[in-house]
Design a protein around this nucleic acid. Structure first.
Lengths: 327, 327
DNA sequence: CTGTTAGCGCATTCAC
DNA sequence: GTGAATGCGCTAACAG
């Protein structure tokens, strides 16, 4: 049988309360008995029962993490950051996947509550709102989303990406997104558009409408593509390279999120990275401050940063006045 | 205050035992009261307390998942599969990252036990063994690893990859790994080597020694590269394309694990995929059968499958007898 | 400084 | 079919 607090107390001839106090640091315990207890714990390999503690204190030391899609390649960085931030304050992480479904999402939240989570970090499905709960909830979405607690400055990120290209002399850009319904992607695209000078031409393409022939778009005059994700940037980049075009000689490519492969391809992908540790730490802090009874803090927006790698370079010299498609 | 079992019992004028029985399905409860109780639960939004239940039954309904590196791009597919398999049997997933450190790994296991996990799935750090615990543990590693409970047939996967290339006429291969110390990668490379006929030439390259110039290797006669991961395959593929070589015209490229980007690049990456749902389901079933008191089942090996996409094609016609570097 | 006591919310005997 | 009592392991008051 697993050793319990009572066993330690009995074998040492002290009371369970003393052992509990020694463990938690609360209450006054003499250094001598404290030492005795520590040794005994090592000796018999005692591990406190979270269930007992949770039942008594109402705190489990576990935070829930509800995601719309674990298979999203952004997830590893995200989960790792959240796990690290939670571990920092002694919390564990319970994960759940809502598979992009609003009903599954609120069910997941319920299950988190059932399992005793002290608070929940939710990355909501597109267009869903997280129903009110008795627990602190931190929502990571986009600035434009209602209820958002913390997020990257996607809009500014889009701006920075386009400014980078403008500075390199690009004046004819392709803006590449996946889904119009994603508020994160919309924010990024809006930011890109906000950075445009009147002299630049732009075409927005959504992959949900089908994958375009990037090479022919380049032949029509485009000199750069800015994608809302490194994944889409990679799709464009490999397609362009496969068609014999040079990146960044003929076209520059910029992505978002600095995914695992982005630094390891040729050319290295210039990208706009989220500050995952900061976002995760903010979300967790948001939860923990509420656990301590503080009021719900205001939403925070974390800056994104431009990582210049080899996929962006000066715009190619215009050979001739090539005809352009305008949106 | 959150509603408890007692509240329902009181408001309905029945005992807590009856409500508990109605919830669990155990015990005999008349259909009429069962219905009454269900309605009341909906009405007041009752959620049972996992802590109370766990304390009483000794089961939390939560499984631990300890990983060496959450940021590994294979992780999303893996975590998703495990989460789904666990949800199937009503279990939640508690994740922890051991950051490739053996000490952190056993600490993570301890914390899982503390938090009341019913069992633990461990993907061990390279070269570590998971110390015995009082809990059921499923270890996902490589066939060659001691203590392994379930894994993909990495060796056979390597064989299939090379056989695919051999059938396409390739006779001069580059085998690409990251780290010699990874048993998964070693198994994959061994499998590749086992499939070689005497007429084929091979060179094994480890990225931990530095990134090679793939284009010059091709000029020396290689017509295909088989990487132990899609990530490394992508590194090779983009480098080759950037150097003006055609994939698969000049070189074929094969990877492993069917990562998120593999289907979305040009050319689509031919890869050897793990059957994640099967592996996850097996690991979870392994745990659950032990929870029911069954003896520890024998280790299982799950087949891998070849996904042929556009990155592999017939070997180019030999132009001349090019000199070859042999390892 | 340390021991005693009383539950936290639930599932489970055992009577009825 | 249903109800009353008991304790899972722990912590928070209070008493000594």
């Amino acid at each position: 049988m697993k050793p319990k607090l009572k066993d330690i107390a009995r074998e040492l001839g002290v009371s369970t309360a003393t052992v509990s106090n020694a463990l938690s640091g609360n209450g006054r315990v003499s250094e001598k008995t404290r030492q005795m207890i520590r040794e005994k714990i090592q000796e018999i390999g005692y591990l406190p029962s979270g269930a007992g503690r949770a039942l008594r204190t109402g705190r489990s030391g576990v935070l829930g993490l509800v995601l719309p899609d674990i298979s999203n390649p952004l997830f590893p960085a995200f989960a790792q950051a959240i796990e690290a931030a939670a571990a920092e304050s002694g919390h564990g992480i319970l994960i759940a996947d809502s598979h992009g479904d609003a009903a599954a999402q609120s069910e997941a939240v319920d299950r988190m509550i059932e399992r005793g989570a002290d608070g929940i970090v939710v990355v909501p499905c597109r267009g869903t709102r997280v129903s009110d709960t008795s627990l602190p909830v931190a929502i990571i979405d986009a600035v434009s989303s209602p209820g958002n607690s913390v997020c990257a400055d996607h809009c500014a990120g889009g701006r920075v990406a386009v400014e980078h290209l403008l500075a390199l002399g690009h004046r004819n850009l392709i803006l590449l997104g996946q889904s119009r319904r994603s508020s994160v992607q919309s924010d990024r695209i809006s930011g890109m558009q906000a950075a445009l000078t009147t002299t630049a031409q732009v075409r927005v393409i959504w992959l949900e409408d089908g994958t375009p022939d990037f090479a022919s778009l380049v032949r029509q005059g485009a000199t750069a593509v800015v994608a809302t994700s490194d994944l889409h940037a990679l799709t464009a980049l490999t397609q362009l390279q496969g068609a014999g075009l040079s990146v960044p000689g003929d076209v520059s490519v910029v992505g978002f999120d600095d995914l695992s492969f982005s630094a390891r391809i040729t050319p290295g992908l210039t990208t706009i990275a989220q500050n995952m540790p900061a976002i995760a730490a903010t979300a967790v802090a948001y939860l923990i401050s509420q656990l301590r009874g503080a009021p719900r803090p205001p939403a925070q927006v974390i800056p994104m940063s431009l990582l210049v790698r080899a996929s962006t370079g000066p715009a190619p010299k215009p050979q001739e006045a090539t005809p352009n498609m305008e949106k």
